[in-house]
Design a protein around this nucleic acid. Sequence first.
DNA 1: CTGTTAGCGCCTTCAG
DNA 2: CTGAAGGCGCTAACAG
Lengths: 330, 330
Amino acid sequence: MSVSIRDVAKQAGVAISTVSKVLNHYPNVSEETKGKVNAAIAELGFVPNTIASALSSKRTGRTALVLDVNRHVQTVDEIPMQYIIGAINKAKEVGMDIITVFFTMVAEMNFDEMVRYFQSQSIEGLIICGLSKDDIMLRKLVECGKFKSVLIDAPGVSESTSCIHIDNARAQYEVAKKFLDGKTYKKILYLSGKKNGYVSEERLNGMNRLAQEQGLDVLVRTGNFSELAARKLTMQYAGSKDAIICASDLMAIGAMKALIDMDIYRPVCGFDGVSLMGYAGKQMHTVKQDFQKIAASAVEELSRLMQGGSGQDIVTPHKLIRIKYLDVIS
Amino acid sequence: MSVSIRDVAKQAGVAISTVSKVLNHYPNVSEETKGKVNAAIAELGFVPNTIASALSSKRTGRTALVLDVNRHVQTVDEIPMQYIIGAINKAKEVGMDIITVFFTMVAEMNFDEMVRYFQSQSIEGLIICGLSKDDIMLRKLVECGKFKSVLIDAPGVSESTSCIHIDNARAQYEVAKKFLDGKTYKKILYLSGKKNGYVSEERLNGMNRLAQEQGLDVLVRTGNFSELAARKLTMQYAGSKDAIICASDLMAIGAMKALIDMDIYRPVCGFDGVSLMGYAGKQMHTVKQDFQKIAASAVEELSRLMQGGSGQDIVTPHKLIRIKYLDVIS
DNA sequence: CTGTTAGCGCCTTCAG
DNA sequence: CTGAAGGCGCTAACAG
């Protein structure tokens, strides 16, 4: 059926192991035999069998991209999709094999079941997006060290785990500062993410720092990254405020919709830079994250870990932008 | 390291092959030994090694979900994401292994390269979403019969290929009819998808049928499923029309935005039922497709094909809905 | 620098 | 109904 390494060996007039060596770029092979082998490979259209290779070497190069989809009312799953695109494209580059897994698929499992689940899939690496403090089992899975992991937007660096994220405190500080620049807004409604959320706390820190510096009067309310919650909180508090700053774009949209319903105008500041913002109607300041690039970095970092590197903390850059509808469609 | 079938055999006091048989639900095993084996499996926490199993049996259960992302200006990749979620969840149920592949990753390959690419990944099944008439190589890949395939929204049933889609002609007919119901709109601007596109033609057929029945005056223009194109076409033609019917929600949004800029009101009808519509501001009629369910059906159908079934054409149901902003956030 | 030889963990005839 | 034996295609010591 399919041509195997043995056929190549025969064709090239060398031993099987020699072929294997050139396949895996081992050092000790003469240029000459390498040439013969490559010629044979090309001639026969040989494709190494990943499965057999994995069985033999015990290295599969398989990693799971674990995503938290739909748990919060995300409405449009733009961010997970961006992660997927970024990760898969980079994975192809570095010869990694990515399967996508959702939190919901492992949510009910206990620790042992999770380990088995991933092991049975021959997975050696994990990229986890959106891990929260409530995901006890997943956290344990990462910490047990059986898998190399990269956490996006969550802390926990260790020998086998790297973390990757923007500087949330600084980003929140900067975007809010730019948003307020030249204005005289003093009374601010700040819609925070989740209480005890990793990134939420950072963003809140950034906001607080700015508040201190500029003597702002900030009312903090927890919006849980929910559009609906943001809407309600805005209804409740915005009337007496000068501006609204949100820890996510989705909440910013909720706030804007509420303002429209209330028929009052208040400037709103977002966070993330999702394109959905372009549809929400108004212009808006926001932090812009390149989720594809972040996922790509995660893949690269995981690949480094799998080659024996040890975990580290990686901070990726962010931008500040102002979204307008025209940005979206042109 | 990890417990293997051998350990289970020893623990249960039977031969390896016997364990394999209960694992794979073979018939000729007595209830008694089956019980012993299962007990041993549970006790040891044994998980079959997929890799070894695949190598030995030559059945991997791996399938590629091939998506056309970002080629048209999709802005928000909601539909692909829904496909992914639906497919992956169902795949877990039926024990299939899904990797996601994007058109861009194989776009440059010729036929042989594609075959090798998928074979080297040990992929046996393909689910392809958004195949167009221009994707010559992918089409050839499907038709060569080396892989079982399910095409979403494209024709081409064969022994090894099934197709799955809504009844686009009927859906377009119905949604347009409902949209026009009780109204006196006669002059319609119809923004079609792609010239020669599989689904576009069907939808146009449905529209034409309604036009005939109701004596409508329909101007058809090709919007390529592009928001921007729809915007321009609306600017150009909507002034003299009573209403605008679009072959996709994204075009409907483009049309609505144009109308706002033109400062005139015309009712708009969409197609797809993406949640993005809820952000576009107005109420709107649209066809609602359940993309997750469609993907799930595709997985099931592929699983049937892989068990030896032969290809067929499957028509999935659609709904007609009216989107309002409140539907989205509540 | 190249070839020989064991397996990796499981499936699958084929005897018993 | 059960067990023994021979691979699947490749890697990885180890000899040569």
